[in-house]
């Protein structure tokens, strides 16, 4: 049986390459936090269900200011909380939701909210590589969401527009 010293001498280069490749793979696993976040469709549906049962205000952090509703930048948390509460009071719901578009958000997505300097500035300031633009089609019309990483099991909402008929 060959000693390890002899084996090392013969396969030094290969072994070093294997170690480096292993380290590379390990690093890619440990740096998941820096990989852009992609929304999962089932989580979007879960969020829509939360809106439908009027639970947005019960999950801290799922809808925080600054927020965009249509073309309005909302900076007062009270206004945002009242918006979700009022939606529930009038029996609003997004029935049979289906995700038809799900991709990284861009500055150009202002057109889905309001193509104005305000909305473009909002997107420039607040969206990052973890923000997605999600289009949901339902029997109640089309809705656009700006969504970020999960908060307490739900995608964090940063923007809402709809229904667009």
């Amino acid at each position: 049986m060959k000693s390890f010293g002899e084996f090392w001498k013969k396969n030094k280069v290969v072994l070093i390459l294997v170690v480096f490749a292993g380290l590379g793979i390990l690093q890619s696993f440990t740096s998941c936090a820096t990989v852009p976040y992609v929304q999962k469709e089932e989580k979007v549906v879960k969020l829509v269900e939360l809106i439908n049962r009027g639970g947005v205000n019960e999950v801290p952090g799922v809808a925080n200011t600054p927020f965009i509703i249509d073309g309005e930048i909302v900076l007062l948390q009270k206004d945002l909380s009242e918006f979700w509460a009022n939606l529930h009071k009038v029996g609003f719901s997004i029935r049979s939701p289906k995700v038809v578009q799900n991709r990284f958000a861009m500055m150009e997505d202002a057109k889905y909210f309001r193509d104005s300097m305000e909305v473009r500035t909002f997107l420039k300031k607040y969206i990052d590589r973890d923000t997605s633009l999600v289009q949901v089609q339902s029997v109640d019309g089309t809705f656009y969401f700006l969504l970020g990483r999960e908060v307490k099991g739900y995608p964090k909402m940063m923007g809402f527009r709809g229904p667009v008929q």
Binding site: E72, I73, D79, F83, N86, G91, F92, P163
Partner: peptide
Amino acid sequence: RRYVVGGLYLQMKARYIT
């Protein structure tokens, strides 16, 4: 325009969305 008109818009939108 932002805090008053915007706030009133949100009130109206939520109440009349249906």
